[in-house]
């Protein structure tokens, strides 16, 4: 919030990842020479198979791993300085959270305000207001006093989104936010991300859920141990690129002639790519037509 006031939309520098390589202590080179940039007001999908380095890229952006080469700049600043200024908010993968930990919904959202508080982390009026507003915005105000383990999968996701909202910041990182989430919650999350984009923030969403990418991402970064391609969705999210990124991990079905006759798609060879429950439908030239909402 403070950040948004200090840098009106349009004058803010975005996110730049320049030639980043990350090697883990066991010698595994998880990323090599990864580069891309994002301007303020962007929703970007970080797309790649499991193990392709999506989470590693997030860790590099948050300074949790030190790149062996290259650098990350957030709002024109080094990672440590950006973190000190509360510029980076993140939503963890559901599997990484201890849901039996003795904290309530409101406590978790208040954690988003820690960076705005003094050393004792004693909340002030502004912090309580930010928490209430964030809870209301994700529709969790009624459940604010629950322990986090007493929530459904979708509600759990909303709590952590609310925490990111309460924190504010220029860059929001979401690691696999759609895994284990029902369609209603997914739509609610997507709506929220679009609002945040209008506020001029950068939202980076990692996913291997191909079908939903074109519906809400205006940029795509394809990763497979490096950045294979990055740019506006229509240019990057194409059949050939996806096959390069996913290789054998995708199931590819070509529709029989009869099925095509009923489908309102262009003539020619329609391709359905799927890595999970939301298959992606592409035209013969590799353009993405949309996602399949019903089984064939």
């Amino acid at each position: 919030m403070d950040g948004a006031l200090a840098h009106p939309i349009g004058t803010r520098a975005g996110l730049s990842v320049e030639g980043v390589s990350v090697a883990y202590p066991n010698g595994h080179l998880a990323l090599r020479d990864a580069s891309f940039t994002l301007a303020p007001g962007t929703v970007c999908g970080l797309v790649g198979v499991n193990g392709s380095g999506k989470s590693t890229l997030f860790k590099a952006i948050m300074g949790l791993v030190r790149p062996s080469a290259g650098q990350v700049r957030i709002g024109g600043e080094k990672v440590q300085a950006a973190l000190k200024r509360n510029l980076v908010a993140y939503v963890p993968q559901a599997e990484e959270v201890d849901w039996s930990f003795p904290v309530g919904v409101r406590d978790v959202v208040m954690m988003g305000r820690y960076g705005h508080m003094n050393i004792l982390r004693l909340p002030r009026t502004a912090d309580h207001q930010a928490v209430d507003a964030a809870l209301a915005r994700v529709g969790m105000a009624d459940l604010a006093e629950r322990q986090i383990g007493e929530l459904s999968g979708g509600q759990r996701k909303r709590v952590f989104l609310a925490r990111a909202l309460a924190q504010g910041g220029e860059l929001l990182l979401l690691d696999e936010p759609f895994t284990g989430v029902d369609v209603t919650t997914e739509d609610a999350i997507v709506d929220l991300l679009k609002q945040l984009r209008e506020e001029g923030r950068i939202i980076l969403v990692s996913t291997h859920n191909l079908g939903s990418v074109p519906t809400f991402c205006d940029h795509v970064v394809l990763v497979n141990r490096t950045v294979l391609a990055a740019g506006p969705t229509p240019e990057v999210f194409t059949g050939p690129n996806l096959l390069r990124a996913f290789g054998g991990a995708l199931r590819q079905h070509s529709l029989p002639e009869q099925a095509k006759a009923h489908a309102p798609l262009e003539a020619g060879h329609v391709v359905v790519l799927s890595d999970d429950e939301r298959p992606l439908v592409m035209a013969p030239d590799g353009r993405v037509l949309g996602r399949l909402t019903q089984d064939l």
């Binding site: 949790l64 509360n86 954690m111 820690y114 960076g115 004792l120 982390r121 924190q167």
Partner: peptide, 21 residues
């Protein structure tokens, strides 16, 4: 009394502590 909340956050969600600087 001074660092207890940060300590608690580091147990619950260390990455959020990083995000808070």
């Amino acid at each position: 009394g001074i660092w207890g909340r940060d300590l608690m956050l580091s147990l619950f969600d260390p990455v959020q502590l990083v995000a808070a600087g």
